[in-house]
Amino acid sequence: MSWEKVFFALLIFPGLLYAVPTAWLMLWLERKFRARMQGRIGPPFYQPFFDFVKLMAKRRVLRPSFDSIFMMGLPLVSVSAGLLALALLPISSDSRGFAGDLVLLVAFLEVPSLCSVLAGFASRSIFGQVGATREAILSITYNLPFLTAIVALAYSAQSLRLVDIAASPAGGVRALAVLTICLCLPVKLRINPFSVSNAEQEIYSGPATEFSGPQLAMWELAHGLEWVALTGLVVCLGLTFRTGTWIGDFAIYTSLSLVLVILLTILATGTARLKIQQAARFYWRWGMGLSLVALILGVFPDIERFIR
């Protein structure tokens, strides 16, 4: 992988230049669709952008210096992790990747949630702490099926390279694994019915309660980037063919991600918030079940052949 390619991936596509507007687009799409489904008109498309600009222009509230390092730093780390994760996605057929980039991607995808837990504790507010605890518990529950699904994918493709997995033949393992990852999306994105850690009616905005101005803007952006990265991951892993042209890949990737955003929004609009135990039970039962089947099929490919 040449340096130019790395910079291109990080800063232009699918990195900064592409990801940030897409993040705003997705945040808007989510709000707009929710509003339309509730019989409202909803915000105009530039809303997340102006929210961001407005928050950036807010004056900072003074805090003790040690806290402020944490409170400035964590959202920034979260944003950069989102960008890095995106840069690794094998969107086009000519991207090469490197051995072990799958592991790095999984790590980067976990950073925003980790930052959020740290932020909750660093903010020294009781609501931030409860939110952080919930986030931590949830991350354990959803990561098990999520990681099992990733392992199943890697095992069946016999590679830790994302490109190889994306190019591996379609089959039961891949379908089940991608389905499990899909199942984990609502909780990773903290939307209904799993919006437990940022449940406004219980603990204000959870870990982000104490953040204001530019820091909050960064959190919003990091959240948007999570949307882009996670939907992108599902599309990359789930899509079994590449058009061969760069433009074609780009178009398919973007449009499928947006469709996924809409589907997730529909789910979020039609449900109430579950409690953390209920959410955990759901993931232990269904998420684990699905991913374990995927893993078994991946380890013993004969079973799949036998079924066929």
């Binding site: 509730q38 409202r40 209904n192 919006s195 009616q201 039609g270 449900t271 109430a272």
Partner: peptide, 11 residues
């Protein structure tokens, strides 16, 4: 709304 079911709140 308290249950987090915003759509029903709107209805």
């Amino acid at each position: 709304e308290v249950m987090g079911f915003q759509t029903l709140f709107m209805t």
